[in-house]
Design a protein around this nucleic acid. Sequence first.
DNA 1: ATTTACTTCATTCTTTTGGGTGATTTAATC
DNA 2: GATTAAATCACCCAAAAGAATGAAGTAAAT
Lengths: 125, 125
Amino acid sequence: MGLLMVLLQVIHYKAMVRDIQMELFGGIIGLLFLVFGIWLGMKLFNKNTSEKYDGSKLGLSKREVEVLELLAQGFSNQEVADKLFVSLNTAKTHISNIYTKLNVKRRTQAIQKARDLALIPTPKG
Amino acid sequence: MGLLMVLLQVIHYKAMVRDIQMELFGGIIGLLFLVFGIWLGMKLFNKNTSEKYDGSKLGLSKREVEVLELLAQGFSNQEVADKLFVSLNTAKTHISNIYTKLNVKRRTQAIQKARDLALIPTPKG
DNA sequence: ATTTACTTCATTCTTTTGGGTGATTTAATC
DNA sequence: GATTAAATCACCCAAAAGAATGAAGTAAAT
C-alpha cells in the first residue's frame, strides 16, 4: 500500500511538471506565432521599412537617397526639410544635386527615374 | 490488483484527454497570437494601404484623366498644354480641378493617388 | 427651352520650385 | 597635415506651380 502511494505521488508530480512545461511550451509557441504573424503582416502589407538602395552607381549620397524617398512620397521641399530636421535651403540643395545627378529637370521625373533605377522602393512591390 | 490496473488506466485516460485539450488550447492561443501579430505587423509596416474612395471614377472627366496621364509622365504644365493643344491656363484649370477631386495638394500626390486608384496605368504592372 | 456638365480661357495673386553661387563644418582618407 | 567628400546653410533670382476668381461656348440630357 505504501508503494502504491509513492507511485501515485510520482505520477502526480510528473503531471505537475508536465503542466509547467506545457505552459512554457505554449508560451514559446505563442511567441513564435507572434513573430511569424508580424513577419506575415510585414510581407502582406509592407511598405518596405528598411532596405538599402544603392545609389553609388550614380554618385548619389545616402542623404540624397533619403531625400529622394521623401520626394517620392509626395512631400514638398519644406516638408522634406522638416522631416530631416534641416533648413529649407539644405533640402533644396540636396534636391538640386539629385536632379543634376539623375539628369532630370523636375521632381516628377526624378521620382520616375529613381524608381526605374530601383534607387527607392516602388509603391506596390 | 485489478482495481489498481483500472485506476491507472483511468488516470492515463484523463491525462490523454488533458493532452488533447492542451493541444487545442495551445492551437487557439497560437491562432490568437497569429492574428495579433498580423494586426501588429499591419499597424507597424503599413502606411495607409487603401483609402476608401467614393465612386470608381471620383467624378473625373475624360479630359482630366488625360491630363492626369500626362502629369504622371513627368510633363510640366506647359508641356501638358502643348500636347493637348490648349492654353497654359486651361491646363492649369484642369490640373487644379484634378487636385480638388482627388483631394490632394500637389501633383506628386495626384500622380500617386491616381496610380493607387488605377485611374492611370502604372509604370511597371 | 432650360438645366447641367464639360471644356475652354483669362486675370490676379501667392507659394513652390529650381538654378546658381559661395561659405562653413565635419569626417574620412591619403 | 593636407586633401576630399558630405552635409549644412545663406542669398538672389527666375520660372513653374497652385489658388481663387469669373466667364463663355458647346453638347447632352431633362
